[in-house]
Write a protein that binds this DNA or RNA. Structure first.
Length: 449
RNA sequence: CGGGGCAUAGCGCAGCCCGGUAGCGCAUCUGCUUUGGGAGCAGAGGGUCGCAAGUUCGAAUCUUGCUGCCCCGACCA
């Protein structure tokens, strides 16, 4: 993409309403624009990041055996009257009426609807296990939206719902999602720690929150230091192997980890001081096993092998991609701007043309831009007629992993510069050497996916 | 939902106390000179001063009502 033809409304000054670093940087980098309280438009750069996050989530959901569909944002109230949550949910639910004065709502979550879809078609235990997910906009009319897309009213959520015949297989479904989440967050460049969670209004017994550590996190968290060294499950994880999934789960939940709501001072005090980690955290995922909470009232039943009808065992599994975009920035930035992990960077490489209009410089830029494009890398070519300083500042702000700096001075000696945004290390190389290094990077990226 | 604050050009702000028809920096546009870490000079464009009433010869400024947004707390992917 040529920057001169892109839409990247960078702000030099920080809008005063933005308090936390991710909000400030997202606004300054032209990723989002607030339309009203807690509701944001995703501008091109932000949209690219959001799309990449969603695609990684999607790949890992699919790998774990979940199946994608898409449910609507608007739901009929009657569905929620069946589960009893129409009255329970309170003012967080945005309630609306259509022209026939039928009660509708903008979905804050989809347990009722997925249960309705399931019961409409599934009749037999042979239809199980089943895990359906979608990535769709949700609306929760928060009393006080804040922190940009971190706590917005409208937000994107991946929500998966599992259906099983009995508790044991339902726990296996839970474990599969547990492992999928660990992989997902690791691929997003995040260190996420699962913590036992309160089940809240969704209900159920078994529940974990996935928390990433960030100094600006909203809640205080407590965990054993061993978590910091745990490796996410590999691509070869045997998702169908019940015993293997259970031991993976057991391994990840053996040590102490809790948010402040679930914190147990007695258990905590038994851990040696040197092994305790107290930090701030951001919740980026939440999974629940809630049994028959919805299947029973909503009559989502199947015939078992014995011919008897049984309500299915269910669980739900949520990740907020829009919140993740902000959370990643909270966990990865410096004073100059964002530092994107490779996998979610809106572009992998930024080429700064230090003297647009200079024939030799233009030619060198265009040549590298075209060649890199053919490797499959996403390249942003800053071909604007701006001063070098402005281009460096822009590239640092938007946080692309690699910066290629091409100017007449270096070119006179056949050299251009390759800078790594994260380390800040700069290499002065020939254009071919830069191309080879980035091609290598491209191949490494492809392997990680 | 309780408490507090703000609303003037795309962004950041001044002007308001003490009424006289709007200004600064950045950004934008034009020209020239510049070009390796947010350039200089010259010129230009852009504002129903959140909305509505009221007071007044005259309201960004005073009064009242409304709306929006932000912050702090309790609650949440």
């Amino acid at each position: 993409m040529r920057l001169s033809r892109y839409f990247l409304p960078i702000l030099r000054e920080t809008p005063k309403e933005a308090q936390i670093v991710s909000h400030r940087l997202m606004l300054r980098a032209g990723m989002i624009r607030q339309e009203t309280a807690g509701i944001y438009a995703w501008l091109p750069l932000g949209h690219r990041v959001l799309t990449k996050i969603c695609n990684i989530i999607r790949e890992e959901q699919d790998r774990a055996g979940a199946v994608e569909l898409l449910m609507p944002t608007i739901q009929p109230a009657d569905l929620w009257r069946e589960s009893g949550r129409y009255d329970d949910y309170g003012k967080e639910m945005l309630r609306i009426q259509d022209r026939h004065e039928r009660d509708m709502l903008f979905g804050p979550t989809n347990e009722e609807m997925i249960t309705e879809i399931f019961r409409g078609s599934a009749r037999s235990y042979k239809d199980l296990p089943l895990n359906l997910y979608h990535i769709q906009w949700k609306f929760r009319d928060e009393v006080r939206p804040r922190f940009g897309v971190m706590r917005s009213r409208e937000f994107l959520m991946k929500d998966a719902y599992s259906f099983d015949l009995d508790v044991a297989s339902s726990v296996h479904s839970y474990n599969q999602m547990f492992a999928a989440y660990l992989r997902t967050f690791a691929r997003l460049g995040l260190k996420a720690i699962p913590m036992r969670a309160d089940t809240g209004p969704i209900g159920g017994k078994l529940s974990h929150e996935f928390i990433i550590l960030a100094s600006t996190g909203e809640s205080e968290v407590f965990c054993h230091k061993d978590f910091l060294g745990y490796e996410a499950p590999p691509e070869s994880t045997p998702f169908e192997d019940r015993a293997a999934m259970q031991s993976l789960f057991d391994h990840w939940t053996a040590k102490y980890a809790a948010t402040s709501e679930m914190h147990d001072e007695t258990a905590w005090s038994k851990i040696p001081e040197a092994e305790r980690v107290t930090a701030r955290g951001i919740e980026v995922g939440h999974i629940f096993h809630f049994g028959t909470k919805y299947s029973e009232p909503m009559k989502a039943v199947v015939n078992g092998p014995d011919g008897k009808e049984v309500p299915v065992q269910m669980g739900s599994y949520g990740i907020g991609p829009s919140r993740l975009a902000a959370a990643i920035i909270e966990a990865s930035h410096d004073e100059n701007g964002i530092i994107w992990p490779d996998a979610v960077a809106p572009f992998h490489v930024g080429i700064a043309n230090l003297k647009a209009g200079d024939a030799a410089t233009d030619a060198a830029c265009v040549d590298l831009y075209a060649k890199l494009g053919r490797t499959g890398l996403d390249v942003l070519y800053d071909d604007r007629d701006e001063r070098p300083g402005a281009k460096f500042a822009t590239l640092d702000l938007i946080g692309l992993p690699w910066q290629v700096v091409i100017g007449p001075k270096g070119l006179a000696e056949g050299k251009i510069e390759l800078k790594n945004r994260r380390t800040g290390l700069k290499d002065t190389l020939s254009p071919d050497e830069v191309f080879n290094k980035l091609q290598q990077f491209s191949q490494t990226m492809a392997k990680q996916a």
